[in-house]
Amino acid sequence: MHALLDNTWKVLRTAPPTALFGLLVIITILLAGLFAPWLAPYGETQVVGPPSLPVGDDEFFFGTDEIGRDMFSRIIYGARNTVGIAFLTTALAFSLGAVLGLLAAVKGRWVDQVLGRLVDILMAIPPLIFALLILTITGTSIMNMVLVIAVLDSTRVFRITRASAMNIGVMEFVEAARLRGEGLWWIIRHEILPNITAPLAAEFGLRFCFVFLFISALSFLGLGIQPPTADWGSMVRQSSNLLAFGQLNPLVPALCIALLTVSVNFVVDWFLYRTSGLKD
């Protein structure tokens, strides 16, 4: 345990400032999301003051929204809702895409062909358009949105998993395992997975950013997470008309979104640099 801490410290000391900044932001937002009810001064949907107070108000630091709810509290709850839902979606997309990608890479032949063509077609349609089409049919609910985005996004995970697994799959140590008579599952678990965890972990970070921005955009368009649930994207939309009066209210949740994605990107960049050993 001590060695582990020691190691972490060593790694962190070599991290560039951007990555440290990113880690700090991610941890802060995670904590805020986890302990939202204890941290937030007011309730998620509680009307606490006059509507549309500007940012920098003495009592409500981030101001209040159009019906007088505390923006600061809703930002904290938003960390739980928006980030939680985005994480869930990414995890779902990842499980689906990675399992199918590995299967396609190792099985090859018709499994690969069928899955590959299917993914080609799904990827040929712009994701936002596809999502809008499907959401029109199924109606806007969080469950539907999570499923639709997870399926659409899994195509990208599928591609990268398949490609990295193929790169490893043609290595002679995998051939040696096949010739030894090892089973498919053993080869995936012992020969392939350990060699592709690093690129997959980085991809998870990037996919999360994409999903998170995607959900925020949908919510912003009024087609994602629905009120009264506190959510950063819809908060931007709801307070957007205050901007015309010189109030900064909509920028606060928008900045939160950007802050989190930038942070994740910084950390992923550093991680890629470390694991690939490449100077670029």
């Binding site: 290595m171 008579g181 012992h190 350990p194 060699n195």
Partner: peptide
């Protein structure tokens, strides 16, 4: 085809490759 051979048949013929870099799993 190798996958139709028995474990014992597979065991009796072993192979050593040209490039030891790709013949050993770097994680093992």
């Amino acid at each position: 085809a190798y996958f139709k051979r028995t474990k014992d048949q597979l065991r009796q013929i072993q192979m050593i490759y040209q490039s030891p870099d790709t013949a050993l799993n770097p994680k093992h």
